[in-house]
Design a protein around this nucleic acid. Structure first.
Length: 301
DNA sequence: ACCCAGGCGGGCG
DNA sequence: CGCCCGCATGGG
């Protein structure tokens, strides 16, 4: 672990970014006290430290070996090439969302490997963050390849689809995946028999989403999460219970709306930056709006 | 003991 | 279609 790369990140808050239920939240470790993220990408172990405040963030990163362009990896992972001021201008349509933007300023929507994103969000369904982390961790530790960090510490690569497909459903069940184990295995089969997900990279959002929804266990919401965080498509607007609840409260006077209507609303209002808006509404809804009608005691992270 | 969790597929009217 | 139900599991 030598060769520190310094990257200027501009506007970035790593805590909001790394704790807001994105794939890195599920399969990596962020040490808040040390402002340090440790994650595996491919066969590389990346350690990134964050310095400075949200308006002027700097990152110092290092990794084992030299098989990746570390600077490029960091810039790509956190989408530092995006003009975030422009993104804020485009999603800042009203007083409601502007509260969310102000509160979580610097939160980035990360870019992740499509397969890793698929597995993580299949695990996320009808589940809570703590358990998602535990299940994903066990799948990685049980089925990933061993690689070695500093001081001989053992890490594991993220098990690829061709490895998962050879497992018995019971093997995945033993990781605590429950009824999702079947989905995980069928996703692995689909991604090796029918399509290499990486081939979807150049395709339209609609194509990507409909292809993903061919996978058993990937529905409307998970497909949008993968399009958003696995393919970087900001047209995607994943609608989970929090988004639905929060959008209904913010924009529909608390009246129930169908998922279809909320998709239409988001597309009209935020267009091809809807996914960026979604992350702010999601995190704001979970942490702030929710206090109106819940005991606010079971945040379950 | 009970409730809930970044949903999904299948079955019903 | 739109709605409703069960689903594995562990933490609060």
């Amino acid at each position: 672990m030598r060769g520190i790369e310094r990257v200027y990140a501009g506007i970035l808050n790593q805590e909001y970014t790394l704790e807001s239920a994105q794939p890195l939240t599920f399969h990596s470790d962020y040490y808040r006290d040390e402002s340090t993220l440790v994650y595996v990408t491919g066969r590389s172990i990346v350690e990134a430290r964050f310095f400075g405040d949200t308006e002027d963030k700097r990152i110092e990163a290092r990794c084992n070996g030299r098989r990746i362009d570390l600077k490029d990896e960091i810039r790509r992972r956190f989408r530092l090439g995006d003009d975030i001021d422009e993104l804020y201008r485009r999603i800042n349509t009203d007083k409601m969302i502007s509260g969310a933007i102000d509160r979580y300023r610097g939160m980035r929507v990360t870019l992740n490997e499509p397969w890793e994103t698929t597995l993580c969000f299949i695990v996320s369904q009808f589940n809570n963050v703590k358990r998602i982390r535990g299940i994903v961790r066990k799948i990685i530790d049980n089925f990933g390849e061993e690689i070695y960090g500093p001081d001989g510490k053992v890490f594991h690569t993220f098990p690829q689809a061709d490895v998962i497909r050879e497992l018995k459903v019971d093997d995945i069940m033993r990781c605590g995946a429950g009824f999702r184990a079947r989905y995980i295995r069928s996703a692995a089969e689909y991604c090796t028999d029918n399509i290499d997900l990486n081939r979807l990279n150049g395709r339209s959002y609609e194509d990507i989403k409909s292809e993903l929804m061919q996978i058993e266990g990937v529905g409307d919401k998970v497909a949008d999460c993968i399009a958003l965080m696995g393919f970087g498509r900001f047209e995607a607007f994943p609608i989970d219970v929090w988004i639905k609840r929060t959008v209904e409260r913010m924009y529909f006077n608390g009246k129930a709306r169908r998922v279809r209507e909320i998709h239409d609303f988001a597309r009209e209002r935020w267009g091809d930056t809807a996914g960026f808006a979604q992350q702010y509404i999601f995190w704001y809804g979970r942490n702030v709006m929710d206090r109106y009608n819940r005991s606010a005691s079971q945040s379950s992270m």
